[in-house]
Design a protein around this nucleic acid. Structure first.
Lengths: 203, 203
DNA sequence: TATACAGTACCAACTAGTCGGTATAACTAA
DNA sequence: TTAGTTATACCGACTAGTTGGTACTGTATA
């Protein structure tokens, strides 16, 4: 073995991630990724065989980070409360705190990809879809438990409400960017939270 | 006067719009825009002085189209019902119908721009923000009227609910693209509608 | 007779990607 | 111990092609 290459690989990934959120990967040249990572072209093409390869590796990387983060959050939330509805509400609050109000480029890599045809390969799409489905499935499951436990019939199905979490999540990023105000993200997630609470508490 | 140039100009705009939604304007070359519009380079640079100029003109163009569409919708909705809440609910239904379930590239130009640094100039941002604010303001106003009329205190403020419409709207596009299923847009808008109705009806 | 193009030839800057070479470190055989 | 071997990790000049944009001539239209 020679010196450990995973460090360099991660530097490239981190560099590409930051630039992708800042200006979109399609509009970012490899030279910029390379410069930002403070490596050379040779190093880049040693680790990735093309820009497309990098794009795919990046979305895989981010999906894995998300999975770990979600896993940890679920664990914390299930320790904090035994009530399924409360668990979901807590998860919303923790999610809202993920984006600092001063964040200059709040956003989701998946959303960034899906509006840039080059990167939006079928492979990339599936990775994003899987990631989304996993998150929605957890919320849906908890809400179904809440329906049973509280013996309530919400006006919108748990499945639709779970998807709406993702909609609000993604939409809040777009709003935050358009209004140039990252705090909007937090506010929207909390609005969703409050709304959920009301739907399952009222009556 | 010679022949009317607005036709050609609109052809360019339409071409760029379609390509922007399909693969993002940043990843689209001028040659593609020109080829798609079936004109020549000379014609393009007669109407637009640069790609940036086109990008700005396009977002302005789309914002104007949106404004007209919204204006017409508001008019229809206010004819159909006198109740402010019902007007908002109707507006949701009409909005849901704007995207055909078979639409190959459902999406919002504004969202597409905001994830592509090149195009995301301060000028473009302001145009999107103004467009968003106008829509949210109408919903917020109607919901405030509904609060008074029905003498109800919703768990989330009209302002937040109005912004949530935009969040769901934008997020639904991202979901539709990620799940590769345009019908998700309609479903999410209806879910928002049903939720709104429940919040203002319950108790 | 100015406008609104078509057409084409061209350019400098940038792009993704290649290629020959080098540095490092672990393994191997004398 | 050490000289030689090998694989990995990386360097950076280079290239072929694309990009946005220019320049200029020609022509149909109102």
């Amino acid at each position: 073995m020679a010196r450990d290459g995973t460090q360099t690989r991660n530097r490239i990934l981190d560099s590409a991630f930051a630039l992708a959120l800042e200006k979109g990967l399609a509009a970012t040249s490899l030279d910029q990724v390379i410069g930002n990572a403070d490596i050379t072209k040779g190093a880049f093409f040693y680790h990735f065989k093309s820009k497309e390869d990098l794009a795919l590796a990046l979305v895989r990387h981010v999906a894995e980070l998300d999975r770990q983060q979600t896993e940890a959050m679920v664990k914390r939330v299930e320790e904090l409360s035994r009530d399924p509805l409360q668990q979901v509400l807590l998860a919303c609050s923790l999610t809202a705190d993920l984006v600092a109000p001063s964040e200059p480029n709040p956003g989701c890599l998946f959303a960034s990809y899906c509006y840039q045809g080059d990167l939006w390969s079928e492979d990339a799409r599936k990775i994003c879809e899987t990631s989304f489905r996993a998150q929605a499935a957890w919320i849906e499951g908890k809400l179904k438990q809440a329906v049973k436990k509280h013996n309530i019939k919400p006006p919108v199905s748990p499945a639709q409400l779970a998807q709406m979490f993702l909609s609000v999540f993604e939409g809040a990023f777009v709003l935050a960017r358009t209004y140039n105000d990252a705090s909007l993200f937090r506010k929207q997630i909390f609005a969703y939270r409050d709304m959920l609470e009301a739907l399952f508490t009222a009556r």
